[in-house]
Amino acid sequence: MSVVILLELPLIYLPFFVGRSTVMMDAIASELPDGAWKMLGLPNGQVRVTLSWRLS
């Protein structure tokens, strides 16, 4: 079973995720089984951050 956490933020928060937060998200994902995260800019001007991992 996989778990996905999805967070959509206004584009104004993009600088927050580009800096130190990418290091933080890498660290969180590395501690989870098959952990991964990605950031995607949406056409409506929001940013989607997805964190996923596998439940044992």
Rank of each mutant, 00 (worst) to 15 (best):
G45E: 05
G19D: 10
V3S: 09
L14H: 09
S52L: 03
S21N: 09
F16R: 15
L7S: 09
T50E: 15
M1Q: 11
W53S: 07
I5Y: 05
L51M: 04
I28D: 01
I12Q: 13
F17D: 01
L6H: 07
L6M: 09
S56T: 12
T22H: 14
W53N: 11
I5S: 06
D34W: 01
A36M: 05
G41P: 00
D26K: 15
L51H: 01
L7D: 08
S56W: 02
L9R: 14
E31W: 04
V18S: 13
G19T: 11
N44Q: 08
L32Q: 05
I28S: 01
S2P: 14
W53Q: 04
S52V: 03
F16K: 14
R20I: 07
T22C: 08
M1C: 09
K38Q: 12
Y13R: 13
N44L: 06
L11W: 04
L14N: 07
E8D: 13
L7N: 07
G41W: 00
I28F: 02
Y13S: 10
P43A: 13
V3H: 09
P43Y: 03
D34K: 13
V3D: 03
M1I: 11
L11T: 08
D34I: 03
I28K: 02
G45A: 05
R54K: 14
N44W: 02
S2V: 13
R20F: 02
V23P: 00
L6G: 09
L32W: 03
L9P: 00
L40V: 11
G35T: 01
D34E: 15
S30L: 08
L11H: 07
E8T: 14
A29L: 05
D34S: 13
T22Y: 05
V49M: 06
S2Y: 08
L40R: 09
S2I: 13
G19L: 12
L14V: 13
E31C: 13
V4R: 15
S56H: 10
P10Y: 02
Y13P: 00
K38P: 00
L7Y: 02
K38E: 12
V18K: 15
T22R: 15
L9S: 07
V18H: 08
L40Y: 00
P15N: 07
Y13C: 11
A36F: 02
T50A: 14
V23E: 12
S2D: 12
E31A: 15
V23K: 12
M1F: 09
V47D: 02
A36V: 07
T50W: 01
L40C: 06
Y13K: 11
E31Y: 04
L7K: 05
G19N: 12
T50I: 10
R48L: 12
Q46C: 10
S56E: 13
L7H: 08
P33D: 10
P33W: 04
S30I: 04
L6W: 00
L6D: 09
V47N: 03
V3K: 11
K38V: 04
E8K: 14
T50D: 04
